[in-house]
Every structure is written in C-alpha cells, then in structure tokens.
Simulated assay, not measured.
Amino acid sequence: MDQPIPLAQKIYFLGIHPEKGGIRSGSVSAMHFVVIGTLLMDLYLEKKIKFEGKKVVVLSTKSDNELHRFVLGKMSQAKSPKKISTWISKLNYSQKYIRSEVQKGLVAKRLIRLEDKSFLFFKWKKPVVLNKQVMYRLISEIDNQIFKGTTAEDELIFLSFLESAAILRIIYQDRKKRKQARERLKQMMVKNRVSGAVADAIAASQAIAASVAVTAAASSVATS
C-alpha cells in the first residue's frame, strides 16, 4: 500500500496489537492524547495551522478531510490563539469522534477492520489489523530513521511521539536497544523544536488528566 498514512492514523495503527487486536495495554492510557497531538501536527504539516511559541494560530479552515475541518472549526471559534496543551485538553472531550474518524481512515485504506464488541450495557468497536506487512514495514522504517538518521520534518515529528505513545517499547523489546534508541531520539529532537513543544504539551495534558482522576476518586471516597 503506497497511499500515505497521516500521522494520527499511523500512531493509532502502530498501537494496535497485530495478533489480538485492540490497542496494546501499554498504549491505552496515552493513545487518545497522542492521537490528538499527531492530529495537530498533521494540520501543521498541511499548513492549516502554525505555532507561535506554544500557541496555535489557524491559517485556513478549508480541508477535504472531515476530521481536519472539525478541529479547525473548533479552533477558529476561539477569540485568541490558545496553547497547544489547552487544545489537546479541549479536544480530548471529542476523543470518541476523533478516534472514530481515525479508525474510518484506516478502514478505508484496508489496514484494519472493526469488530462490534459488547459487555453488559457497554458497546465498542475493536480494531483488528488486516495488513500486518504494512505494520512491520512501518516498524522497520522507524528503526532505520532512528539509527541511520533522517532530516525529513514529518519523520522527525512522528518519531517524537513514539515515547509518549509507549510504542518505543513495542519496537525495541530488548532493554539495551531501547535505551540506545531513546538516546538517539533525544539527540535528534534537539533540532526539532516544534514537535518537542507538542510532546511537552501531551505530557502536561496527561498529567492534568491523571490529577483530575485522582481528585475525583478522592472526592468519591470522602463523600461515601
């Protein structure tokens, strides 16, 4: 399959277990934040937005992509530019829709299929990998980009999200090799300020979400 895969679809695809289906356990908690972060970078690479410091400035709301139009529409309604971390947190409220659109894109490319699942009153769609060759090819490309180097902006940006998505440990199960890959990535990201800012914003948003969850749990215990 030679059709290019947007960053948001690529990161989600790599997070799916190739044999069992569903998002790998190590990536579940971070995946929705990372997908939103990579979605913003898709918009950046398409020159629909730009970054001024750590704030997002909308350049155009026109797009052939329905998900992109949705995100750009929300951003354009803001009275002033907001921080990347703010948008990641705000868009997290639309994570179900965003995930659905990312899945649709992968289904259209015949990379995954969706299985209807249910338990008691809960229903969801489980992603299952159809084209494992593409997944393994992507992993091989990532390995080459890390250890042989790359200057392509889209590749550098994508690499910056691997640690946040817990995908680095999937690619390098050997601890020593993973440590070497992590060091290589740190060196490469020094030259890639934009994606570094987004990665920081994802970490901040995850910390906020974790803090909210802990506070809510503590409040529930106190009032029970």
Rank of each mutant, 00 (worst) to 15 (best):
I5Y: 04
L185S: 07
L45T: 06
A204E: 11
I5K: 03
Y172L: 01
K176I: 14
I167G: 07
L45F: 07
A209D: 13
A217E: 10
M189Q: 15
G21L: 06
K191H: 15
I98G: 06
M188K: 07
I5C: 08
V56G: 01
S85V: 08
E153P: 00
N131M: 03
F161Q: 05
M1A: 10
E141F: 05
A108Y: 09
P18W: 02
D116Y: 11
T150V: 02
I84S: 00
P4R: 04
L43A: 09
K125H: 09
V129R: 05
S63K: 02
V128K: 15
A213E: 13
W124P: 06
Y12K: 06
F158C: 05
L43W: 02
K191W: 13
Y136A: 01
L156P: 03
D154R: 12
I208N: 06
V58E: 07
R169L: 13
N144F: 07
Y12H: 12
G21C: 08
Y44D: 07
S27P: 00
E46W: 09
D174R: 04
S60H: 02
S89R: 08
L120E: 13
F122K: 09
I202C: 04
E101Y: 08
Y44M: 10
S195H: 00
I139A: 14
F161M: 10
V214E: 09
A222L: 11
F158W: 05
L120F: 11
Q206E: 15
A30T: 01
R169T: 15
D64P: 00
K176P: 03
L45Y: 08
F161K: 03
S94P: 00
Q206Y: 04
Y136F: 14
M135W: 07
I5T: 14
A204T: 11
I171C: 04
S220R: 12
V221N: 04
T223Y: 10
S27Y: 00
V35W: 00
T223M: 11
S80T: 11
S224N: 10
K109A: 15
G22M: 02
K20Y: 12
R113S: 14
I142A: 03
I49Q: 01
Y12A: 13
I139Q: 12
V198D: 00
R99S: 14
L40S: 05
S118G: 06
K104H: 11
K191L: 14
T150S: 09
V134R: 12
V128H: 11
T215R: 13
K125P: 04
V28N: 11
E19F: 12
V212D: 13
A8N: 12
Q3S: 14
V34T: 02
R110P: 04
Q103I: 02
K148E: 14
A166W: 05
S205A: 15
P4M: 07
S219H: 08
L111P: 07
H17Y: 12
E19W: 08
E155W: 04
R69T: 11
F13E: 02
N131K: 13
F70Q: 05
S195I: 02
Y136G: 01
V56Q: 01
I142Y: 06
E52R: 14
V57F: 03
I112W: 03
I49P: 02
M1Q: 09
